[in-house]
Protein backbone atom coordinates (compact mmCIF):
# COMPACT_ATOMS: atom_id res chain seq x y z
CA UNK A 1 0.00 0.00 0.00
CA UNK A 2 1.61 3.28 -1.11
CA UNK A 3 1.82 6.34 1.11
CA UNK A 4 0.74 8.76 -1.58
CA UNK A 5 -2.75 10.21 -1.37
CA UNK A 6 -5.34 11.32 -3.83
CA UNK A 7 -7.23 14.56 -3.21
CA UNK A 8 -10.81 15.25 -4.29
CA UNK A 9 -12.46 18.67 -4.13
CA UNK A 10 -16.14 19.59 -4.43
CA UNK A 11 -18.55 22.05 -2.90
CA UNK A 12 -22.15 22.16 -1.65
CA UNK A 13 -24.45 25.12 -1.26
CA UNK A 14 -23.44 26.93 -4.41
CA UNK A 15 -26.96 27.37 -5.75
CA UNK A 16 -29.01 28.28 -2.67
CA UNK A 17 -30.00 31.82 -1.85
CA UNK A 18 -29.78 31.13 1.89
CA UNK A 19 -26.90 29.97 4.07
CA UNK A 20 -23.21 29.18 3.80
CA UNK A 21 -21.38 27.36 1.01
CA UNK A 22 -18.98 24.57 1.92
CA UNK A 23 -15.98 23.62 -0.21
CA UNK A 24 -14.31 20.42 0.90
CA UNK A 25 -11.06 18.64 0.07
CA UNK A 26 -10.78 14.97 1.02
CA UNK A 27 -7.28 13.46 0.93
CA UNK A 28 -7.15 9.69 1.25
CA UNK A 29 -5.45 6.56 0.03
CA UNK A 30 -7.01 5.71 -3.28
CA UNK A 31 -7.67 2.05 -2.57
CA UNK A 32 -9.36 2.87 0.75
CA UNK A 33 -11.62 5.56 -0.66
CA UNK A 34 -12.55 3.30 -3.58
CA UNK A 35 -13.44 0.47 -1.21
CA UNK A 36 -15.91 2.74 0.63
CA UNK A 37 -17.93 3.06 -2.56
CA UNK A 38 -17.46 -0.61 -3.50
CA UNK A 39 -16.85 0.33 -7.10
CA UNK A 40 -20.13 2.22 -7.31
CA UNK A 41 -19.31 5.90 -7.33
CA UNK A 42 -22.55 7.73 -7.49
CA UNK A 43 -23.27 11.38 -7.50
CA UNK A 44 -23.84 12.29 -3.87
CA UNK A 45 -26.98 14.13 -4.94
CA UNK A 46 -28.58 10.81 -5.86
CA UNK A 47 -28.07 9.25 -2.43
CA UNK A 48 -30.81 9.31 0.16
CA UNK A 49 -30.03 11.72 3.03
CA UNK A 50 -29.70 8.78 5.42
CA UNK A 51 -27.25 6.89 3.19
CA UNK A 52 -25.28 10.09 2.64
CA UNK A 53 -24.96 10.63 6.40
CA UNK A 54 -23.80 7.02 6.89
CA UNK A 55 -21.20 7.38 4.15
CA UNK A 56 -20.03 10.72 5.57
CA UNK A 57 -19.19 9.01 8.87
CA UNK A 58 -17.25 6.26 7.08
CA UNK A 59 -15.35 8.79 4.93
CA UNK A 60 -14.44 10.90 7.98
CA UNK A 61 -13.10 7.78 9.71
CA UNK A 62 -10.97 6.67 6.77
CA UNK A 63 -9.76 9.89 5.14
CA UNK A 64 -6.25 11.06 6.02
CA UNK A 65 -7.18 14.75 5.88
CA UNK A 66 -10.35 16.73 5.34
CA UNK A 67 -9.92 20.43 4.57
CA UNK A 68 -13.00 22.64 4.75
CA UNK A 69 -13.59 26.14 3.40
CA UNK A 70 -16.78 27.72 4.69
CA UNK A 71 -18.09 30.79 2.88
CA UNK A 72 -20.87 32.80 4.57
CA UNK A 73 -23.32 34.93 2.55
CA UNK A 74 -21.41 38.13 3.35
CA UNK A 75 -18.32 36.73 1.62
CA UNK A 76 -20.30 35.21 -1.26
CA UNK A 77 -21.96 38.59 -1.83
CA UNK A 78 -18.67 40.35 -2.32
CA UNK A 79 -16.99 37.85 -4.67
CA UNK A 80 -17.51 36.32 -8.06
CA UNK A 81 -18.50 32.78 -7.07
CA UNK A 82 -16.13 30.97 -9.44
CA UNK A 83 -13.21 33.17 -8.40
CA UNK A 84 -14.04 32.50 -4.77
CA UNK A 85 -14.08 28.74 -5.38
CA UNK A 86 -10.84 29.00 -7.37
CA UNK A 87 -9.21 30.81 -4.45
CA UNK A 88 -10.58 28.19 -2.05
CA UNK A 89 -9.31 25.37 -4.27
CA UNK A 90 -5.76 26.72 -4.19
CA UNK A 91 -6.00 27.09 -0.41
CA UNK A 92 -7.12 23.45 -0.03
CA UNK A 93 -4.36 22.13 -2.30
CA UNK A 94 -1.73 24.27 -0.53
CA UNK A 95 -2.89 22.96 2.86
CA UNK A 96 -2.80 19.32 1.75
CA UNK A 97 0.58 19.82 0.06
CA UNK A 98 1.94 21.08 3.38
CA UNK A 99 0.65 18.25 5.58
CA UNK A 100 0.47 15.20 3.31
CA UNK A 101 3.54 13.05 2.62
CA UNK A 102 2.82 13.10 -1.11
CA UNK A 103 -0.11 13.61 -3.42
CA UNK A 104 -0.45 11.44 -6.52
CA UNK A 105 -3.42 13.18 -8.06
CA UNK A 106 -6.00 15.91 -7.51
CA UNK A 107 -9.51 15.49 -8.89
CA UNK A 108 -11.83 18.50 -8.93
CA UNK A 109 -15.44 18.96 -9.93
CA UNK A 110 -15.47 21.66 -12.57
CA UNK A 111 -15.19 25.31 -11.54
CA UNK A 112 -15.65 27.41 -14.65
CA UNK A 113 -12.92 29.87 -15.57
CA UNK A 114 -10.44 28.65 -12.97
CA UNK A 115 -6.80 28.16 -13.98
CA UNK A 116 -5.02 25.02 -12.84
CA UNK A 117 -1.60 26.68 -13.12
CA UNK A 118 -1.27 27.54 -9.38
CA UNK A 119 -2.08 23.91 -8.50
CA UNK A 120 0.55 22.62 -10.94
CA UNK A 121 3.07 24.90 -9.28
CA UNK A 122 2.16 23.57 -5.85
CA UNK A 123 2.19 19.93 -6.97
CA UNK A 124 4.53 19.79 -9.99
CA UNK A 125 4.68 15.99 -10.23
CA UNK A 126 1.00 15.29 -9.59
CA UNK A 127 -1.82 14.56 -11.98
CA UNK A 128 -4.41 17.31 -11.83
CA UNK A 129 -7.82 16.68 -13.33
CA UNK A 130 -10.78 19.05 -13.40
CA UNK A 131 -13.94 17.71 -15.00
CA UNK A 132 -17.65 18.40 -15.01
CA UNK A 133 -19.37 15.51 -13.25
CA UNK A 134 -16.18 14.40 -11.48
CA UNK A 135 -18.25 13.55 -8.41
CA UNK A 136 -19.86 10.66 -10.26
CA UNK A 137 -16.56 9.48 -11.78
CA UNK A 138 -13.91 9.65 -9.05
CA UNK A 139 -14.47 8.15 -5.61
CA UNK A 140 -12.42 10.81 -3.87
CA UNK A 141 -14.50 13.63 -5.42
CA UNK A 142 -17.70 11.78 -4.49
CA UNK A 143 -16.32 11.63 -0.94
CA UNK A 144 -15.66 15.38 -0.93
CA UNK A 145 -19.14 15.98 -2.34
CA UNK A 146 -20.73 13.87 0.39
CA UNK A 147 -18.87 15.65 3.19
CA UNK A 148 -19.72 19.05 1.72
CA UNK A 149 -23.38 18.10 1.42
CA UNK A 150 -23.36 16.66 4.94
CA UNK A 151 -21.95 19.89 6.36
CA UNK A 152 -24.37 22.04 4.38
CA UNK A 153 -27.34 20.00 5.62
CA UNK A 154 -26.28 20.23 9.28
CA UNK A 155 -25.84 23.97 8.74
CA UNK A 156 -29.34 24.29 7.24
CA UNK A 157 -30.80 22.30 10.17
CA UNK A 158 -29.20 24.76 12.58
CA UNK A 159 -30.52 27.75 10.61
CA UNK A 160 -34.04 26.26 10.57
CA UNK A 161 -33.95 26.09 14.37
CA UNK A 162 -33.16 29.81 14.58
CA UNK A 163 -34.90 31.35 11.55
CA UNK A 164 -37.78 28.94 10.90
CA UNK A 165 -38.31 26.45 8.10
CA UNK A 166 -37.14 28.07 4.86
CA UNK A 167 -36.95 24.73 3.04
CA UNK A 168 -33.76 23.84 1.21
CA UNK A 169 -32.68 27.41 0.59
CA UNK A 170 -32.74 26.80 -3.18
CA UNK A 171 -34.63 29.39 -5.22
CA UNK A 172 -36.68 26.65 -6.90
CA UNK A 173 -38.08 25.53 -3.53
CA UNK A 174 -41.56 27.06 -2.95
CA UNK A 175 -40.94 27.03 0.83
CA UNK A 176 -37.77 29.07 0.32
CA UNK A 177 -39.59 31.54 -1.88
CA UNK A 178 -42.47 31.89 0.58
CA UNK A 179 -40.05 32.41 3.46
CA UNK A 180 -38.20 35.12 1.50
CA UNK A 181 -41.44 36.84 0.60
CA UNK A 182 -42.60 36.73 4.23
CA UNK A 183 -39.27 38.20 5.32
CA UNK A 184 -39.89 41.13 2.97
CA UNK A 185 -37.24 43.81 3.09
CA UNK A 186 -36.14 42.71 6.58
CA UNK A 187 -33.88 39.94 5.35
CA UNK A 188 -31.68 38.26 7.98
CA UNK A 189 -27.91 37.94 7.41
CA UNK A 190 -28.23 34.31 6.28
CA UNK A 191 -29.62 35.51 2.93
CA UNK A 192 -27.29 36.16 0.01
CA UNK A 193 -28.32 39.68 -0.84
CA UNK A 194 -26.46 40.00 -4.09
CA UNK A 195 -28.22 36.90 -5.39
CA UNK A 196 -30.14 37.53 -8.57
CA UNK A 197 -32.90 35.37 -7.18
CA UNK A 198 -33.89 38.11 -4.79
CA UNK A 199 -34.58 40.38 -7.70
CA UNK A 200 -36.31 37.64 -9.61
CA UNK A 201 -38.50 37.05 -6.57
CA UNK A 202 -39.56 40.65 -6.63
CA UNK A 203 -37.60 41.61 -3.52
CA UNK A 204 -35.34 43.80 -5.59
CA UNK A 205 -38.17 45.52 -7.39
CA UNK A 206 -38.84 42.77 -9.94
CA UNK A 207 -41.79 40.45 -10.17
CA UNK A 208 -45.25 41.43 -11.30
CA UNK A 209 -45.77 43.82 -8.36
CA UNK A 210 -44.89 47.02 -10.18
CA UNK A 211 -47.34 46.16 -12.96
CA UNK A 212 -50.34 45.82 -10.66
CA UNK A 213 -53.12 48.26 -11.25
CA UNK A 214 -53.12 50.63 -8.28
CA UNK A 215 -56.17 50.90 -6.09
CA UNK A 216 -57.81 47.76 -7.42
CA UNK A 217 -57.81 44.40 -5.75
CA UNK A 218 -59.55 42.12 -8.20
CA UNK A 219 -60.67 41.81 -11.77
CA UNK A 220 -64.14 40.56 -11.16
Amino acid sequence: MGKCLVLGVDEAGRGPVIGDMFQVGVAAREEIIKSIFEGNVRDSKKLSPRRRDELAQVILEHAEFVVINRFPPKVIDSWNLNRLLGWGLTKIVATVETIAPCVDAVFIDEIKGVSLAPLKQLLPGSRIVMEAGADSRYAVVAAASIIAKFLRERHVDALHAVYGDFGSGYPSDPRTRSWLIRSGSDLPPIVRRSWKTLKRLGLGGGGLTKFFKSGRSDES
Binding site: R177, S178, I181, G202, G207, L208
Partner: peptide, 12 residues
Protein backbone atom coordinates in the same frame (compact mmCIF):
# COMPACT_ATOMS: atom_id res chain seq x y z
CA UNK B 1 -62.57 32.24 -13.06
CA UNK B 2 -59.76 30.49 -11.22
CA UNK B 3 -56.89 32.74 -10.09
CA UNK B 4 -53.58 31.96 -8.46
CA UNK B 5 -50.27 33.73 -8.06
CA UNK B 6 -46.99 32.23 -6.94
CA UNK B 7 -45.57 33.50 -3.63
CA UNK B 8 -42.71 35.31 -5.35
CA UNK B 9 -45.24 37.18 -7.52
CA UNK B 10 -43.33 36.10 -10.60
CA UNK B 11 -46.27 34.36 -12.26
CA UNK B 12 -50.02 34.79 -12.18
Amino acid sequence: TFKAMDPSKTAL
